[in-house]
Design a protein around this nucleic acid. Structure first.
Lengths: 208, 208
DNA sequence: GTCTATACCATGATAGAC
DNA sequence: GTCTATCATGGTATAGAC
């Protein structure tokens, strides 16, 4: 199954053991992503991850050498999912609508419990991520793609010319982990769609 | 000195010991506020607070029964400072400009290292705060004052009529702990004034 | 009320059997 | 590679002398 789903692989022949290992590691990363989104890096414990996956804590350390490395793997997976979404956007759409789609997708993902709020923390995780070339490469790819969209949207008159590209970029990123979403959800006065609409509207009106 | 600065007190006569105690507790709360802003509740340790104040850790527990209670005291002080600022706003100013002043003040305070980023965490601190009547009362006072300003600004045409008051309120609150500030500061491409201007502009344009 | 010293516990990480 | 059992660290909170 893994074989047929990856026909482009140069080494398609994976033993049953290897396949099992991949499945297990995916399960670990998924559980990590959920817990990371729910509690953040510091409050997430390795015991919880192990319990969620259903394995012993020591087994985690056979797959990932440290808590930071595990979280980094989860963050990389998240980045790759984001990249896949951005690359799959319809090219004939207006750039500003593509940007809105990205934010909408991020907010929906977060509501489903799959997007860790990563502020600019001074934690050990940050250092690990900055030293991870794979993470940095993915991040630079994403920044480049988003930067192109932003400049196209500005050329189309949808973004104010006085706002630098990086300011717009950071603003959109920050909106994806905006605590306003949690506040409004706690209120229970608006449904999920309305909450997302409020966030997208106030964000992009502010950039226009 | 404490005596003369509080002439309205019903029990003005404070012994030297009592004055000293107040000064000490203020120092503790100030140090807590700084560390809270710098590292957040979870990463802040009681050892650090004690070291910053210059007393033994055990002495902290003579003043505050727990880490949560200490943080709550700091949060209350912050709320009271905010209330004092809002109450001191020039009443003849347009409501929208008063709101902008509040956000500007909050962002300046945060840049000086005095405003803890308090997301809607699932931590023990949240429960403590919700059970603290003094905190809750101050928070309700602030919400009411800000709510009045928002409705006045809407009546004056500065805020979009389709945006509910609580959505506007949460959006402004969220902007005061926006990670965009940290990102742009790390860039070092813009000075502090420019960064604050970007945040205020994009925020209130989005609400218009 | 402040100090030194310590109890107690949660958690990240590891050893060693299977 | 997975498990049980354990270590080491660091952090909250407290005891007891002064």
């Amino acid at each position: 199954m893994e074989y047929f789903s990856q026909p482009m692989s140069t080494e398609p022949k994976l033993s049953f053991k290897q396949q099992q290992l991949i499945v297990r590691e995916n399960a670990i990363v998924d559980a990590t992503n959920q817990l990371l989104a729910k509690k953040g890096f510091d409050l997430m414990t390795m015991d919880e991850v192990a319990a969620e996956v259903g394995i012993a804590k020591a087994s985690l350390y056979k797959h990932f050498p440290s808590k930071e490395a595990l979280a980094a793997a989860a963050m990389i997976q998240l980045l790759e999912n984001t990249l896949a979404f951005v690359r799959g956007l319809p090219a004939d759409q207006a750039a500003i609508d593509q940007l809105k789609s990205v934010l909408q997708w991020a907010l929906l993902t977060r509501m489903k419990g799959g997007l860790p709020t990563l502020p600019a923390e001074n934690t050990s995780l940050r250092e690990t991520l900055l030293n991870n070339t794979r993470y940095i490469n993915r991040l630079m790819d994403l920044n480049e793609l988003m930067g192109e969209l932003i400049e196209k949207a500005r050329a189309e008159g949808a973004i104010h010319k006085d706002l630098p590209t990086d300011v717009v970029l950071f603003t959109i990123y920050a909106r994806s982990c905006d605590p306003t979403l949690d506040y409004l959800r706690m209120n229970e006065q608006y449904n999920e769609e309305q909450v997302i609409d409020f966030l997208i509207t106030t964000c992009f009106n502010g950039l226009h």
